[in-house]
C-alpha cells in the first residue's frame, strides 16, 4: 500500500510539473506582454509613455529575461506561495484573488457532493425499476441534462428568476459580505447562495453518473450470485444492499477522475456567466487583458484541483479495492 501510495504521489508531482510548464507556455503564447499591450493602448489614446518607467517596470517584473528564467521564478514562487504580480490590478496576485480560490474550492466540492447525493438514489431506483415509466422518464430527463450545456441552463435560470422573482441569482453571497472577512453570517450566506450554481454545474455530471450507476447495477443484478441469493430466500432489500450495490459503487470513486475536469470546466463558465465571485470571471478578464501571472495562477489552481482530486480518488480506490492495491495498478 505504501509503495502504491509513493508511486502515485510521484506521478502526481511529475504531472503537476508538466502542467506548470504547459500553462506557462500557453500564457506566454500571445505575442508581446502586458506592458506592450498597455503601451500600445496608451499611445493610441495619444498619451506619452515614459520609456524609462516602462524599462524599469519591465526589469522589475523580469519581463526582459529569457523565458526559462521567468518560468523558474514563477514556479518557485508558486511553491513558496507567492503567486506573482497582477499587472492589471497593480497588486500581488494573492491580494487580488482574495477568497476567490476558497470559494471555487467550496463550489466545486459542493457540486461533487450534490452529484453523489442526487445520483445515488435515482440510479438505484432506475436500476431496480428497469423499463418502468419512472425509469423511462428519468432516462429522458438525464439525456436532457446531458445535452443542455450548463451555461445555457444558467442563462435560462437567470432569465426565469428575473421574470418570476425580479431578482438576480448571480452571486455567491449577500452583497454586504462581499470583500468582508469570513464570519459565521457570511458562511451561511454563501451556503444559501450555493444552491443555484451547484444545481447548474452538477446537472450534466449527475445525469452521467445516474446512467453509469444504473448500467453497473443492472449488470450486477443479472449475475448468478444474486439469483442464488434470491433462491435461498434473502429479502430483496438486504440482497440489494449487501452485494450488488457495493460492487456497483466503484464508479462513484473511480469516476472522480473524469468528473472533476468536467465539473471544474463547468464551474468556470457558469461562474463567468453568472458573475460569481470565484475564479471564473477573473480568469476570463485576466486572459483577455493578458495579465500573465494572474491567468497563470488561476489555470494552475484549476489544474491542481483536478490533479489532486484524482490523486485522492486513486488512493481512496486503492484503500477500498484490494485488486488495485495488490495489482500495483498494473491492470490499467
Amino acid at each position: 500500500m505504501l509503495n502504491y501510495f509513493a508511486r502515485r504521489l510521484l506521478t502526481m508531482v511529475i504531472t503537476l510539473v508538466v502542467i506548470s510548464a504547459l500553462v506557462f507556455i500557453i500564457i506566454q503564447l500571445p505575442p508581446g506582454d502586458y506592458l506592450t499591450t498597455q503601451i500600445a493602448e496608451l499611445e493610441s489614446q495619444g498619451e506619452m509613455v515614459d520609456r524609462e518607467k516602462i524599462e524599469h517596470l519591465r526589469q522589475q517584473y523580469g519581463l526582459d529575461r529569457p523565458p526559462i528564467e521567468q518560468y523558474w521564478d514563477w514556479v518557485t514562487g508558486l511553491v513558496r506561495g507567492d503567486l506573482g504580480f497582477s499587472f492589471e490590478h497593480n497588486l500581488p496576485v494573492s491580494d487580488v484573488v482574495g477568497d476567490r480560490l476558497l470559494l471555487s474550492l467550496v463550489l466545486n466540492f459542493s457540486t461533487i457532493l450534490f452529484i453523489y447525493i442526487v445520483a445515488f438514489p435515482i440510479g438505484v431506483y432506475s436500476a431496480t425499476h428497469q423499463y418502468s415509466w419512472s425509469d423511462h422518464g428519468l432516462t429522458l430527463l438525464g439525456f436532457l441534462g446531458l445535452a443542455t450545456p450548463n451555461f445555457l441552463l444558467a442563462l435560462i435560470l437567470m432569465y426565469l428568476a428575473n421574470v418570476w422573482f425580479g431578482t438576480s441569482v448571480g452571486s455567491m453571497m449577500a452583497e454586504e459580505f462581499i470583500g468582508q472577512p469570513w464570519t459565521w453570517g457570511k458562511a451561511v450566506s454563501v451556503a444559501e447562495h450555493l444552491a443555484v450554481p451547484v444545481f447548474v454545474i452538477g446537472t450534466s455530471g449527475t445525469a452521467g453518473m445516474i446512467r453509469r450507476l444504473r448500467a453497473n447495477l443492472l449488470d450486477e443484478l443479472q449475475k448468478q450470485y444474486v439469483v442464488t441469493g434470491r433462491a435461498k430466500g434473502l429479502p430483496r432489500g438486504r440482497l440489494l444492499v449487501k452485494y450488488p450495490l457495493r460492487m456497483s459503487l466503484n464508479p462513484f470513486i473511480a469516476d472522480i477522475g473524469s468528473m472533476l475536469p468536467q465539473v471544474v470546466s463547468g464551474s468556470v463558465i457558469v461562474s463567468a456567466v453568472m458573475s460569481l465571485e470565484t475564479t471564473g470571471p477573473m480568469l476570463l478578464t485576466a486572459l483577455q487583458s493578458q495579465d500573465t501571472f494572474l491567468a497563470g495562477s488561476f489555470l494552475m489552481f484549476l489544474a491542481m484541483l483536478t490533479v489532486i482530486g484524482m490523486f485522492l480518488s486513486d488512493v481512496l480506490l486503492a484503500l477500498l479495492d484490494p485488486r488495485i492495491r495488490l495489482g500495483g495498478g498494473a491492470g490499467r
Binding site: V18, I19, L29, G257, P261, V268, A295, L302, T306
Partner: peptide, 17 residues
C-alpha cells in the same frame, strides 16, 4: 496529463492567445 486538465479553461487560454 491532457485528460487530467479541465478542458474549458485551457481552451479559453488558447483562444485568448
Amino acid at each position: 496529463v491532457l485528460r487530467s486538465l479541465p478542458e474549458l479553461p485551457l481552451w479559453m487560454a488558447l483562444s485568448a492567445a
